[in-house]
Amino acid sequence: MGESESSRRISVHQALGGGLVADVLLWKNWCGGLTVLLSSTVMWYLFERAGYNLLSFVSNVLLLLVVILFFWAKAASLLNRPLPPLPDMEISEESVAKAADELQIWINRALSVAHEIAIERNLILCLQITAALLLISFVGSLLNFLTLVYICVLLGLSVPLLYDKYQDHIDDKLYMVHGKIQARCEKLDSKFLRKILIPSNKVKKMD
């Protein structure tokens, strides 16, 4: 693959947004990545292995937090110390607008896919969506939701890092696989259309 093509590629860091999330997933922020890994591992162990209940865990954590803040505030008032540094407890309009814009993008993508399948009758896209849903259903039947989320966290902390390191080799393999799958899907689409069109032509000739 030429140097000009590789130079035009978007880096993995840019593709992930280039912010704090990208730094954590690519382990550029070691503290954040380690925190996500350890916290997700502890949560998975508590709820999956130790049999801890989610509702009781959340209530106990909140209870502990409320007690700590109460005694901290009491001690601060008695000892003339600053109060607990709590952030501003409200959601800004800018945050709501960003969340709404992101949600609108995902909804429009879903509606666009539905339009391609239902109106445009895109057989290749329909087969791709069907295969993805069947794969998700199969994986979901093997694992429970919490374990699946934990595996997704582990993949999120490992796959982007590996892809960033071996991007050229992985892209070459993916292009080859994509070309073969697309050729197979086009052959299947043409065979399917022939089966539909040939009987209709025979009916017209008989008329």
Rank of each mutant, 00 (worst) to 15 (best):
E116A: 14
L16G: 07
I198T: 13
L127W: 09
I107V: 14
K202F: 14
R184M: 08
N122I: 03
Y52C: 09
I151A: 11
M43P: 00
V139I: 13
L78F: 15
S200D: 11
S190R: 15
D101T: 12
L46R: 07
G156C: 12
P160K: 11
L125F: 00
H13Y: 14
L103V: 05
S7I: 12
K98H: 06
C126S: 10
C152F: 14
Y150M: 08
L146E: 11
R109S: 07
A76T: 07
L63M: 09
E120L: 12
I129T: 07
F145Y: 14
L155M: 12
G19Y: 04
G18P: 06
L26Y: 03
I105C: 04
I196G: 03
W44D: 03
P84V: 00
M176V: 15
R49S: 11
H115F: 07
V66A: 08
F57W: 10
V66C: 04
D172V: 08
F70N: 11
S59W: 06
I105A: 02
S95P: 04
M206G: 00
V177H: 08
M176H: 15
R8G: 11
M176C: 12
S59T: 07
L78I: 15
H115I: 02
G179H: 06
D88P: 03
L79F: 11
W44T: 06
L161Y: 09
E102M: 04
R81A: 09
L143G: 01
Q104A: 13
K180I: 13
W27Y: 08
G32D: 00
R8L: 10
L55R: 13
D101C: 06
Y52G: 06
S112Y: 07
A183R: 08
N53W: 02
L69F: 06
T35E: 02
L65E: 05
Q14V: 09
Y45A: 11
S137G: 15
T147W: 09
I198K: 12
R121E: 11
G17K: 12
R121M: 06
E3T: 11
L25V: 08
I136Y: 04
V36G: 06
V21T: 14
L111Q: 11
I10Y: 09
K98M: 05
V24F: 00
D189T: 15
S4I: 15
L37A: 14
S59G: 00
A50Y: 00
I91E: 00
L142S: 02
G2F: 06
V67G: 01
C185W: 09
S92Q: 02
G51F: 01
V177T: 15
R121I: 01
S40D: 04
S56R: 07
V203T: 13
E94L: 13
R9N: 10
S112D: 11
D207E: 10
N29A: 01
L142R: 10
K204A: 07
L103M: 12
G156R: 07
L193P: 01
V113K: 03
E94H: 12
V203P: 01
L157P: 05
D101E: 12
A73K: 01
L83I: 01
K202M: 14
L37T: 08
Q14H: 13
I124N: 09
E116G: 03
S95Q: 14
A99L: 12
P84W: 03
L133W: 05
L133S: 08
V203K: 15
V12M: 13
H178R: 10
Q182N: 13
E3R: 12
D168M: 13
L143F: 15
I107G: 02
V153D: 03
D207G: 15
S92N: 05
